[in-house]
Amino acid sequence: MIAVRVSLIQKINATFDLSWRLFTHTVGAKYRKSFLGYFWMVAPAIFITLGVTLANRAGILSAGKTLLPYPLFVLLGTLLWQVFAEAVDVAHRAFDGARSYITRVYFSRSAIILVQFYESLVTTLVRCTLVLLLLELFHGLELYGICLIILCFIGSLLLGLGIGAILMPFTLLFADLHNTIKLVLNYGLFLTPAMYEPKGDSFFATVIRCNPVSPLMQSAREAAANVSMSQPLVLTGVLAAAVLTTILGFALVRLVAPIIIERMLLGGK
């Protein structure tokens, strides 16, 4: 039994080692093609924030009294959702992008997912840094606030990664499923408290509250506003779920990778 465990640990080590090497060797590739690399990571959220804020100022869109100045409120929420939404696609993108060689060489499959994860991590940190900078500039932040906000971003990333990894075998097999999920992720922003607080008992408000990213947004905002947490237990639950789904997701990928790769062979190069 011990021998088996050692071998699993060795495999995990090898996976991390390979993923790190692949990442460092390809880091240049993405940004060689675009000049404004970092800009694209935050531009969409900024534009959404600008648009919604203008609408708010003009009295068209009213969200009532919010914890933070409205633009910061929206930016924080939108970025947290984007981190989650992009993380869900990571596992699928990793396998899809490796189609040409995953069917011809054997290597630890999880490694390529980890490579995409590192890229997402970089993107997340950039977004997080932007938010922290703006919050500090326009509002003021405590150390506790900074830590909690970073925690919420990481939690959002891991939650998305885990869910994406669990869904990945099926989204690779059924394009319809993949398209549906992409649709939900694109417009799911409206089903979150990114732009408004969930008030009242209407069905819509309940849906927003039940969204797993909502506690993360809520807690991040409360931390930024230096207000005590209203949902500490729920937050802990969501963070724990994030870690659990990530571990489960990777285990699932390891288990079923050969089945998927076989279909990739059939589906053409």
Partner: peptide
């Protein structure tokens, strides 16, 4: 496996970088 010559090659990277990439894989 000679079935996989050039596995992992990325066109935008240089030959040097691709050697590291391919051999890591």
């Amino acid at each position: 496996p000679m079935l996989a010559l050039g596995a992992g090659f990325k066109p935008v990277l240089s030959g040097r970088e691709n050697i590291y990439l391919n051999l890591s894989l």
